[in-house]
C-alpha cells in the first residue's frame, strides 16, 4: 500500500560561523551547505503493518514523513500510497492519513478538547453517525471521558497525548504517522499509549509508521524496523537483525550508529 522508490531530497542551508568577524562577513556573503536529506531511499509497507522508522537526529526521518504525508515534494524517485502520489493529490491523500507530531499540539489550547474534536469533524467532513461511533470507541480505549470537557492547557502531557492521538483518528485514517508519540511522557502514559496503538492496529488494521528515539516503543510495537542514516536506508529488517538487541537496547543502538558512522 505504500511503495517508495529511489527517493532523493537535497536541501541548501545557509551556514554562519561564530564570532564577530563572521557576523560581519555574513552581512555581505552567505555560504550554503548542501544537505542530502534523502539519498535513494526505497521501501514498501503492506496494509496493516507496523513499522519503526529510526535513525539519529537529522538522518532524514522527518523529510520522509513529510514526503509520505504530501507536505514535501522530493527531487527524484517515486512514492505511491493507496494508488496516489501524495504531493500531487494532497487533499484526497490526507483524508486517509492521520499524523501525530509528538512535540506539537493540534488541539486548541484554551477550549475544551471536545471543541477541537468538533472542529476536526467539520474539517474532515466526517458524517455525524460515524463521528459519534469513532469518538465513543476512542473515548473508551484511551479513557478520555473525564478529559473531553477540560481545556487543553489544563491537561497533563500524558493526558494531552492521549487526546492528541484520538484527534488524529477521528476520521478513521488507513495510515497513521506517529512522530515521537511518547516523548516526555511518564511510564504509565507511555504504556497506555503503546497499548492503544497495538489495539488500534488489531481492530482496524491501521498501518502505523512510527518514528522514535525510544527503543522500548520499538520493542513493544513493531516487528519491522527501517534504519536510516545520512539519508540512506541502512537496515530494513527486524529487531533481531540488530546485534546485541536482546541485551541493553540503548547500548545496542548506540553501537549500531557508531558502526555505520552516523
Amino acid at each position: 500500500m505504500i511503495e517508495v522508490q529511489h527517493l532523493c531530497k537535497t536541501f541548501y542551508v545557509a551556514r554562519r560561523g561564530a564570532g564577530f568577524g563572521q557576523a560581519l562577513h555574513s552581512l555581505f556573503h552567505k555560504d550554503y551547505e548542501e544537505i542530502r536529506a534523502l539519498d535513494d531511499v526505497s521501501f514498501s509497507i503492506q496494509e496493516g503493518e507496523m513499522v519503526g522508522y529510526i535513525g539519529p537526529n537529522g538522518a532524514g526521518k522527518s523529510s520522509t514523513i513529510k514526503i509520505l504525508s504530501g507536505i514535501l515534494v522530493p527531487d527524484g524517485g517515486s512514492c505511491i500510497i493507496n494508488g496516489r502520489v501524495p504531493w500531487q493529490d494532497r487533499i484526497s491523500h490526507v483524508r486517509e492519513i492521520g499524523v501525530v507530531f509528538g512535540q506539537r499540539t493540534q488541539l486548541w489550547w484554551d477550549v475544551p478538547v471536545m471543541d477541537s474534536y468538533e472542529l476536526l469533524r467539520d474539517i474532515y467532513g466526517v458524517p455525524e453517525a460515524i463521528y459519534q461511533e469513532n469518538l465513543e470507541e476512542l473515548t473508551d480505549l484511551l479513557n478520555l471521558s473525564e478529559l473531553l470537557k477540560t481545556p487543553v492547557r489544563q491537561l497533563s502531557l500524558g493526558q494531552r497525548m492521549r487526546c492528541e492521538i484520538a484527534a488524529s483518528l477521528l476520521h478513521n485514517p488507513r495510515i497513521l504517522f506517529l512522530d515521537e508519540p511518547t516523548i516526555g511522557l511518564d511510564a504509565v502514559s507511555k504504556l497506555a499509549v503503546r497499548k492503544f496503538i497495538l489495539r488500534r492496529n488489531q481492530l482496524h488494521h491501521t498501518t502505523v509508521i512510527l518514528t522514535t528515539h525510544d527503543m522500548q516503543d520499538i520493542e513493544a510495537l513493531t516487528k519491522r524496523i527501517i534504519l536510516i542514516g545520512k539519508g540512506k536506508i541502512l537496515l530494513d529488517g527486524t529487531l533481531d537483525d540488530i546485534p546485541g538487541s536482546h541485551g541493553n537496547m540503548e547500548q545496542a543502538m548506540a553501537d549500531l550508529y557508531r558502526n555505520y558512522g552516523i
Binding site: 554562519r16 564570532g19 564577530f20 557576523a23 560581519l24 555574513s26 552581512l27 555581505f28
Partner: peptide
C-alpha cells in the same frame, strides 16, 4: 556588549 552587538548584526536582510 560585544556579544549582544554581534548578535544584532546577524540580520542582514532585516537591516536592508
Amino acid at each position: 556588549f560585544r556579544l549582544r552587538f554581534s548578535m544584532g548584526l546577524q540580520y542582514r536582510a532585516a537591516a536592508l
